[in-house]
Simulated assay, not measured.
Amino acid sequence: MSRLRLVVFDVDGTLVDSQGDILSAMGEAFERAGLDVPSRDVVLSIVGLSLDVAIPRLAPDADAATQARMVDWYKDAYIRLRAAGGVEASSPLYPHAREVLEALHRQPEILLGVATGKSRRGLDKLLDGHGLRPFFMTQQVSDHHPSKPHPSMLMAALSETGVDPGDAVMIGDTSFDMDMGRAAGMGAIGVSWGYHDRAALRAADRIVDDFRALPAVLEELWEPAT
C-alpha cells in the first residue's frame, strides 16, 4: 500500500492572482486612514501574512486603534470588490492550476490542503466561486492560527490528515510559505509566478516556473522516501 502524501497550497499568489483587489482594498484602507498608500511592491511583499500582522508592517507609525480600523476597512473594500467583479474575475486561477489540482486529486495516495492568510469567509467564497472545495481535505485559515511563517497551520494539517512531515510539502509564492514549511519539518516548493521575487524563495527545495511541472517535481522530491 502506498504511503499517504500531503500537498498543501498557499492561495493568493499561488493558486489565484488576486493582486488587483488586494492593491485596491489596501489603497482604500490607507486613504481612509489619511496615510500615503504604499507602492505595489511593498503591498505585495506582505501578501500571505494575516491582516493583523500585515497592516502594522505597512503602517508602523499608525496607532493600534487606527491599524485595527484599517484591517476592517481593507476587509470591507475587498468584499465589495469581489462581489462587484465575481470570484473568477477578481481572483482568477493561474494557468493550468485546475488541471494540475485535478490530476493530483485523482491519485489516491495524495491528499491536498490549503494554508492561507485569508479568513474562513474569504476562503469559502474563493473555493465555492471556483468550484474547488472538493479538492482540499484540510483547509487552514487565519481565523484559527498565528500568522505565517508560524507552523501552526501546517501542524494542524498534518494532524488532521495523519501524514508525517517527511511525506508532506508546502507550496507557495512567498518566503513566509517556505519558512513555514521548514518550521513544520516539511518540504517546500516555491512558485515563481507569485508576489515574492525568486530570490526570496531561497529556503525552497525546488522552484517551479510552470504549474504543469509540479507533479514531476513532487515525484523527484519524494523519490528518496519511496
Rank of each mutant, 00 (worst) to 15 (best):
V37F: 04
G117K: 07
M186P: 14
G86T: 03
L158P: 00
G86N: 03
D12E: 10
R106T: 13
E223W: 15
A115D: 05
R182D: 04
V43M: 03
L51K: 01
G172W: 03
I189K: 04
V16W: 00
P134H: 15
L127T: 06
L158Q: 05
V208D: 01
L218G: 09
D52K: 15
G34M: 08
S2F: 12
A54H: 00
G181L: 10
D210R: 14
S90M: 06
S39R: 07
A225V: 14
M180N: 02
A83W: 12
D197M: 08
A83H: 13
H150W: 08
H145N: 15
K125N: 15
R40H: 02
F176E: 01
A156V: 14
G129N: 05
Q19R: 14
T66D: 07
L23D: 06
L123Y: 06
V169S: 05
I79P: 01
A199V: 09
L221A: 09
I46N: 02
M155N: 12
E99L: 06
A200M: 10
T161G: 02
S39V: 06
R57P: 08
E219Y: 14
L111R: 02
S18G: 05
M155E: 06
A199R: 05
V217Y: 07
F135A: 11
W193M: 13
D179A: 15
G48Y: 00
P215K: 05
A184S: 06
